[in-house]
Nucleic acid binder design. Structure first.
Length: 907
RNA sequence: GGGCCCGUAGCUCAGUCGGUAGAGCGCCGGCUUUGCAAGCCGGAGGUCCCGGGUUCGAAUCCCGGCGGGUCCA
């Protein structure tokens, strides 16, 4: 922590009202209070909750929210709609964890104007960090909560308000809107850090509960140190759930937030009601447990609570544990409703993984409760509940949410089924489960140690789970920090030049133009004042072409752009600095790439329309002939869906829609089009280039595009395949490559059709028949070969010579037979005291095998015998006692047989 | 983005040291049984994921790819 962040937070407004600064003897933190005799900071666990059972007003959660927002509106703030809980506009975060996340990094740094200033918002936030505490803290911790906020962004040009006004606004809200007597408000001092910003803060405490955080963001992280920011940001966060709980004074926070859902879920799960007074007592005591903050095991804490309250431990475990689990389910299912409605696709990577984590955690809790109920049913209840409490948009996605959850639940049950078997197998073979086994079961199969121990117990084994299990796991993942992207070493040289004027943006069909050479780096990196060459970017490869000038010309292989400076890497001699040159872009390749790029946007939109709004671009690669578009989706695409996507895409082409490209500030673009513009990833610039297919699709994109969709030509999607859990790759072609490939394929089809003498539309049936026939013929052939082998071997056995009591038969076969099949057949026909030597002609050498009957295998030891003999003849071989195999040079056959006979005599 | 595990009959999976690819369930036929459940005998069914390498010989060892699972950030 930077020293400059410490020090008293002095607010004139509070001083004037008689607030004095004190230090809490328990937690050691500073706070402001009206009561000169007060000793502690008043926040649990320094002091217990005192609001339980003392309702201030019985306002519903949506009323509390509305009161706040309209109060702030009356005080000059503009109300802003909530952002998605998935932070699409951030590349450093998966989930929206605070209201300020909506405005980082460009608005807080002053590069982009805010959507309004000052503004007020109630932002649903998700934090999975404290997921273990959800339930045991009776409502203080939640994975999903609403952060109500008023933000002011102060710059030199426009100063809105700062510390004094912020505290005044809070104070007025708390006393007048909430009706809290001001002597009950304590302001605790603190320091807030997050998202690369920091600043001092005040945390208002009422009756033991922290209900808001008033942050004065004035520092930013630069090279690991905090330095003052040009802009000063008022970052407040009012806990809607906590405030509602405080006002209602209900036994737990869940009662205040989830209302009738609490009873609903409890009766669904068969969880018995707990007396309010008893529950309040429990909540109050648990608020005092500092250890809960430090992540000590919940079990040992229950023992502590039992000691302090005199409630028997059994009663706690009997009454409170099922209640805590129900609370966790209430919270998790709400979080899932928002995550999935906002487009999260469960998977094993990124935010999808977080979604799956929460889904599986909830399913485990339901198992623990012994409840057989589908997760989708519970989440549907949340959707119903919250769509009537200010989030009607949740309802739009209900079908998809249900579908996704049912699929996930099935997968999880399948996982447990397989896991059960796996644990049993380990127990069967090893009679125990080792620590390493636990790690493998967890990491490779997703089975928690608790599950393994449970299954083992059912099988009558005891498995000890090490206390530090997750430390063991963590240690294995203690890998190197991600390395920053490596910039080529010539970037410094490039930075000496001013940005190149990109002519390809003004007119994407302009393929030749003149320019002036302003520099040459590394001998063949040409920098021009302006260029028609498109540099690499947005999954679109760079242009190629020629630069020519009076006295020479050079082939442009590759074009790159760094911070606006474009460098053309040429093959051969570069033009001298100052030369006037003429640029010519390879027309066909540029057109192909442009068509493929625009086709990517068209197909993405078609996929969204067919599959749903959760479809998001995961990645894309544009080629000359074939391009790829990876999209998020939670189940395989059916052939029918794929055809509809293809049809919609081609319709969009034929409607010949106008494609507009223009620049907007991020705020303006987000306001106008939403976050769906960030399909190709987050663009790290304050201004965005927008590519709009009028009335069809809008994205932020830096590529070159056709000006009407008709220019794309035919779009053909070749196939869709799952490349990863939750991600599907579409491979397609557009324009002439698509047409040519389709013509080629049809020609091929015609050839097959005429060679089989079957009409094209009957080909697949006909081929299936042919395959069936082939199979029959093969098995007939094998049968015949078997007969032939049998007679071959039988006659060899009849003609066998006897060598020291062993019948030695000799079978010679052509390379039509595999050695294995001859050996197998011979083994079936073998009589007692018999050895068969099999010789297979394989061109330049013979494969040989010696097979003996069971009764003499110990005497002959075929494997070692063959090894000795083949080796002595310049070949190689080996095997077991019954069967030896090897190879010898062609000319050594007679010698081999002689040696074999001789050795048999010796044995 | 990084790590680990897996890919063998229709299904679930064994396969040791590199040396004749197996089991259970399912399927087909026969027998037994009043019938059913079942039992007994026999049979069909394999691109050992794909490609390359090492080797006399690869399901097995090595390299690359594809597919699936899972954990972490």
């Amino acid at each position: 922590m930077d020293m400059s962040l410490q020090g008293p937070v002095e607010i004139q407004f509070l001083k004037e009202r008689g607030y004095v600064r004190k230090r809490c003897p328990i937690c050691g933190e500073y706070f402001w209070t009206l009561d000169p005799d007060r000793e502690t900071c008043g926040e649990a666990p320094c002091e217990p909750y005192s609001f339980l059972g003392k309702a201030i007003s019985e306002k519903s959660i949506e009323q509390v929210r509305e009161d706040f927002l309209s109060f702030m509106e009356k005080r000059g703030h503009t109300r802003i709609n909530r952002y998605p809980v998935i932070a699409r506009w951030r590349d450093d975060l998966f989930l929206t964890s605070a209201s300020i996340v909506d405005f980082q990094p460009f608005i807080t740094s002053g590069l982009v104007p805010p959507p309004a200033n000052p503004l007020t918002i109630s932002q649903p936030c998700i934090r999975l960090k404290d997921v273990d505490k959800v339930g045991p803290t009776m409502g203080r911790h939640l994975t999903i909560f609403e952060m109500m906020a008023h933000h002011a962004f102060n710059s030199k040009e426009r100063w809105v308000y700062w510390k004094e006004r912020t505290v005044e606004l809070f104070h007025e809200y708390a006393t007048e809107v909430l009706g809290i007597p001001e002597e009950e408000i304590i302001y605790k001092e603190g320091i807030w850090e997050g998202g690369g910003n920091a600043g001092p803060d005040l945390e208002p405490i009422v009756r033991g509960l922290e209900i808001a955080t008033l942050v004065f963001m004035e520092y930013k992280m630069v090279n690991g140190k905090y330095v003052p920011m040009d802009t000063k940001v008022v970052d407040t966060g009012y806990g809607l759930e906590r405030i509602t709980w405080l006002l209602n004074g209900s036994p737990t926070g869940f009662h205040a937030v989830y209302g009738k859902l609490v009873d609903d879920f409890m009766s669904l799960f068969g969880v018995g009601r707990v007396d309010d007074k008893f529950l309040m007592e429990y909540t109050k005591v648990s608020s005092l447990l500092r250890e809960l903050e430090k992540g000590k095991s919940v079990n040992s804490l229950r023992r502590e609570i039992s000691k302090r309250t005199g409630i028997p431990l059994e009663l706690i475990e009997d009454k409170i544990v099922p209640l805590e689990l129900t609370f966790a389910v209430l919270d998790h299912t709400k979080a899932l409703a928002f995550m999935l409605a906002d487009g999260l696709v469960p998977s094993n990577v990124n935010e999808g993984y977080l979604g799956r984590l929460l889904i599986r955690r909830t399913l485990r809790i339901l198992k623990q409760l012994g409840v057989e109920i589908s997760l989708s049913e519970l989440v549907s209840k949340q959707v119903d509940y919250w769509s009537s409490k200010g989030f009607p948009e949740l309802k739009e996605s209900i079908d998809r949410i249900t579908d996704m959850l049912d699929i996930e639940q099935k997968r999880f049950e399948e996982l447990l089924r397989r896991g059960r078997q796996l644990v049993r197998d380990i127990l069967r073979s090893k009679k125990r489960v080792s620590e390493e086994d636990l790690v493998v079961l967890y990491e490779s199969h997703g089975l928690t140690p608790e599950f393994v121990a449970q299954v083992a117990k059912e099988e009558g084994y005891e498995v000890k789970v090490p206390d530090n299990f997750f430390e063991l796991i963590a240690a294995k993942h203690e890998s190197k920090p991600p390395k920053p992207p490596e910039l080529p070493d010539y970037v410094d040289e490039l930075m000496k030049y001013s940005p190149t004027k990109p002519l390809y943006y003004q007119n994407p069909y302009l393929l030749n133009a003149s320019a002036q050479v302003v520099g040459v780096i590394r001998g063949n990196g040409v920098i021009l004042d302006s260029t028609v060459f498109y540099p690499e970017g947005g999954g679109q490869p760079s242009d190629v072409g020629y630069i020519s000038w009076d006295g020479g010309s050079a082939y442009v292989e590759r074009v790159e752009k760094y911070k606006g400076v474009i460098v053309h890497w040429v093959k051969g001699e570069a033009p001298p600095v100052g030369t006037k040159v003429s640029c010519q872009v390879d027309r066909i390749r540029r057109l192909n790439r442009m068509r493929h790029h625009s086709a990517t946007h068209v197909i993405l939109e078609a996929a969204k329309r067919v599959l749903g709004s959760h479809v998001w671009q995961w990645g894309a690669q544009k080629g000359d002939e074939v391009s790829r578009l990876d999209i998020t989706h939670y189940k395989p695409i059916t052939p029918d869906e794929l055809r509809r996507i293809e049809e919609i895409a081609n319709e969009a082409v034929m409607r010949n829609i106008r494609v507009n490209t223009f620049w907007l500030t991020r705020t303006e673009a987000e306001k106008r089009y939403g976050f769906e513009i960030y399909q190709g990833g987050v663009v790290p610039d304050p201004t965005l280039r927008i590519v709009e297919i009028e009335g069809y699709n809008v994205q932020a994109c830096g590529g070159t595009h056709v000006i009407r969709t008709g220019d794309i030509g035919y779009i053909k999607i070749w196939r869709a395949k799952r490349i990863q859990d939750g991600v599907i790759r579409l491979e397609f072609s557009a324009g002439m490559p698509a047409v040519r490939k389709m013509i080629g394929m049809h020609e091929e089809l015609k050839k097959v059709s005429s060679s089989l003498g079957v009409p094209e539309e009957r080909l697949s049936d006909s081929i299936a028949e042919l395959k069936e026939e082939l199979k029959k013929l093969k098995s007939k052939l094998n049968e015949l070969k078997g007969f032939e082998l049998r007679s071959l071997i039988s006659s060899a056995l009849e003609k066998a010579e006897v060598v020291s009591g062993i019948k030695l038969a000799k079978v010679l076969v052509s390379d039509d037979y595999q050695l294995d099949e001859v050996v197998k057949k011979a083994d079936k026909l073998l009589e007692e005291s018999t050895a068969v030597v099999i010789i297979r002609d394989s061109g330049n050498r013979y494969n040989v095998a010696l097979l003996t009957s069971e009764d003499i295998k110990g005497r002959v030891k075929a494997g070692s015998l063959i090894r000795e003999i083949t080796k002595s003849l310049g070949g190689g071989g080996g095997g077991n006692d019954k069967l030896g195999r090897g190879a010898i040079p062609r000319e050594k056959l007679e010698e081999f047989l002689t040696k074999l006979r001789d050795s048999l005599i010796k044995r």
